[in-house]
């Protein structure tokens, strides 16, 4: 008897888990399904898991591949949109921040963990105190600073605040370098290596895992960034995907938004992270073990 109830409980647990997976995935399915539906069908074709007349026109018009007249005929508002360009901007933005920030924070993390110099713990304490300063607090003065420097609507202005460091990355990488075994380094010192040699030839190669972890996490956050690029990257030429989605929604009439176009653009904003998840899924999942509990 107990055996049977146990199995029943297990089955129920699986059903609950499966239900949650369906609730997680279904909205994305519906997004793609809408993106593949012709705008003219939106009132009639809204049951069923697949569209009645699948089309790619919504993708080609938000990617700026169709003429204005064609886009208008397919349900667009006629305003100029080019998500190919916005995607490119987002990719540049994320790559720049992830690579440069990870490298510089690794250097600093290594110095705080391994080098000996006066004032080390004091300087580290001050940098880490910035963890307690929420982004909104530095956002307003940073906006004014970037404006005064004449960097509005430039990629330089957009990446500036996070390009060189975030307190978290410094903290995280220092923690890792502290756990590296010292004897390898001491052997390298005896071989005549200075701090730079040890860092590049030994410490960095030994920390591939944590470097990828922090790089991936930074990439994901940069991909999701909205408020800062909204304020600084207003020009069409350096608009990011997230900002462009907001602009697209505003251009769309309030009475009847251009849902098929919006969902095509939304799908494009999900695609790169989906690729990341497929190729780096294991790493991403493991990164939570790192950042979450230790």
């Amino acid at each position: 008897m107990t055996r049977r109830t146990f199995h029943l409980g297990r089955a129920l647990a699986w059903v609950a888990l499966a239900a949650f997976i369906v609730v997680t995935v279904f909205p994305f399915w519906w997004m793609i399904r809408t993106a593949l539906t012709p705008a003219a069908d939106i009132y009639t074709d809204n049951a069923g898991l697949l569209p009645d007349h699948p089309t790619l026109i919504n993708f080609s018009r938000v990617l700026g591949l169709t003429s204005e007249a064609e886009a208008r005929a397919a349900g667009g508002s006629g305003a100029h949109i080019n998500f190919a360009g916005y995607l490119w901007n987002s990719i540049v933005y994320c790559s720049l921040i992830a690579i440069v920030q990870t490298l510089f924070c690794a250097m600093a993390g290594y110095a705080f963990a391994r080098l000996r110099f006066p004032g080390r713990d004091l300087v580290f304490g001050i940098v880490i105190a910035a963890l307690m300063v929420p982004p909104i607090f530095t956002l307003l003065p940073n906006f004014i600073l970037v404006k005064d420097l004449g960097l509005m609507s430039t990629m330089a202005g957009m990446v500036a605040p996070t390009l060189l460091m975030t307190p978290f990355a410094v903290f995280f990488l220092r923690q890792f370098f502290l756990s590296l075994p010292r004897d390898v380094e001491e052997a390298a010192i005896l071989d005549g290596n200075g701090p730079w040699g040890i860092f590049w030839r030994i410490a960095l190669p030994m920390s591939r895992g944590p470097l990828i972890t922090i790089g991936l996490t930074t990439t994901v956050w940069a991909w999701k960034d909205f408020l800062w690029p909204l304020l600084v990257g207003r020009d069409e030429s350096n608009r990011l995907v997230t900002v462009a989605l907001g602009v697209f929604l505003q251009q769309s009439p309030n009475t009847q938004p251009d849902w098929t176009g919006l969902m095509a653009a939304s799908t494009l904003s999900v695609l790169p992270v989906l690729v990341l998840l497929i190729f780096m899924g294991k790493r991403l999942v493991q990164s939570l073990n790192f950042t979450g509990s230790k």
Binding site: F20, F28, V220, K224, L245, V273, L274, L277, G281, L284
Partner: peptide, 13 residues
């Protein structure tokens, strides 16, 4: 990884 998907997607989307 599937559970992680929504976290990867921008809040705007």
């Amino acid at each position: 990884a599937t559970l992680l998907l929504p976290w990867l997607v921008p809040n705007v989307t």
